[in-house]
Amino acid sequence: MLAASSGIIVITSCKDVKFDRHWLATAYNWFIIPYMVYDVYAMYLRHWYRCYDKQVLNGKDQFATAMNSLLRKDFLMLVHHVVILTILVPIGLFLRRDIGDFFVGCLYVAEMSTPFVSLGKVLIQMNLQNSLLHKVNGALVLITFFLCRICLFPFMYYAYSKQYGIPLYKVPFSIPLHCNVVNASIMAPQIYWFWLICKKALRLYQGPARSGKDR
Results as ranks from 00 to 15, higher is better:
residue 8 I to D: 12
residue 9 I to C: 08
residue 9 I to S: 05
residue 9 I to G: 04
residue 10 V to N: 09
residue 10 V to L: 03
residue 11 I to V: 14
residue 11 I to L: 13
residue 11 I to E: 12
residue 12 T to P: 06
residue 13 S to D: 14
residue 13 S to Q: 08
residue 14 C to K: 02
residue 14 C to F: 02
residue 15 K to Y: 14
residue 17 V to M: 10
residue 18 K to S: 13
residue 18 K to D: 13
residue 19 F to G: 01
residue 19 F to C: 08
residue 19 F to D: 15
residue 20 D to W: 01
residue 21 R to L: 14
residue 21 R to Q: 15
residue 22 H to Q: 11
residue 22 H to P: 06
residue 23 W to M: 12
residue 25 A to C: 09
residue 26 T to I: 09
residue 26 T to W: 10
residue 26 T to F: 07
residue 26 T to E: 15
residue 27 A to R: 01
residue 28 Y to W: 13
residue 28 Y to Q: 11
residue 30 W to C: 07
residue 31 F to E: 08
residue 32 I to N: 12
residue 33 I to A: 06
residue 34 P to L: 07
residue 34 P to D: 05
residue 34 P to F: 01
residue 34 P to I: 07
residue 35 Y to D: 11
residue 35 Y to Q: 09
residue 37 V to Q: 07
residue 38 Y to Q: 04
residue 38 Y to G: 06
residue 38 Y to A: 11
residue 39 D to F: 00
residue 39 D to W: 00
residue 39 D to L: 05
residue 40 V to T: 09
residue 40 V to K: 01
residue 41 Y to G: 03
residue 41 Y to E: 00
residue 41 Y to M: 11
residue 42 A to H: 02
residue 43 M to Y: 04
residue 44 Y to C: 05
residue 44 Y to P: 00
residue 46 R to V: 05
residue 46 R to W: 00
residue 47 H to Q: 13
residue 47 H to K: 05
residue 47 H to F: 06
residue 48 W to D: 04
residue 48 W to K: 06
residue 49 Y to M: 07
residue 49 Y to Q: 11
residue 49 Y to K: 03
residue 50 R to Q: 12
residue 50 R to C: 09
residue 51 C to N: 06
residue 52 Y to I: 01
residue 52 Y to N: 02
residue 52 Y to A: 11
residue 53 D to S: 04
residue 53 D to G: 04
residue 54 K to C: 08
residue 56 V to M: 08
residue 56 V to N: 03
residue 56 V to T: 14
residue 57 L to G: 06
residue 57 L to S: 05
residue 57 L to M: 05
residue 58 N to V: 10
residue 58 N to Y: 00
residue 58 N to E: 11
residue 58 N to L: 06
residue 59 G to P: 14
residue 60 K to W: 00
residue 61 D to E: 12
residue 62 Q to L: 07
residue 63 F to P: 00
residue 63 F to D: 02
residue 63 F to H: 08
residue 63 F to E: 07
residue 64 A to L: 09
residue 64 A to V: 09
residue 64 A to K: 07
residue 64 A to M: 06
residue 65 T to C: 12
residue 66 A to S: 12
residue 66 A to F: 08
residue 67 M to I: 10
residue 67 M to N: 12
residue 68 N to V: 03
residue 68 N to L: 05
residue 68 N to G: 15
residue 69 S to R: 05
residue 69 S to Q: 12
residue 70 L to Y: 05
residue 70 L to K: 00
residue 70 L to W: 05
residue 70 L to G: 05
residue 71 L to F: 08
residue 72 R to F: 01
residue 72 R to P: 07
residue 73 K to C: 15
residue 73 K to I: 12
residue 74 D to V: 01
residue 74 D to G: 02
residue 75 F to R: 05
residue 75 F to Y: 11
residue 76 L to Q: 11
residue 77 M to Y: 08
residue 78 L to Q: 09
residue 78 L to W: 03
residue 79 V to P: 02
residue 79 V to E: 14
residue 80 H to A: 12
residue 80 H to I: 11
residue 80 H to P: 15
residue 81 H to K: 03
residue 82 V to L: 15
residue 82 V to I: 15
residue 83 V to F: 10
residue 83 V to A: 13
residue 85 L to K: 02
residue 86 T to V: 12
residue 86 T to W: 02
residue 86 T to A: 13
residue 86 T to F: 08
residue 87 I to S: 10
residue 87 I to T: 13
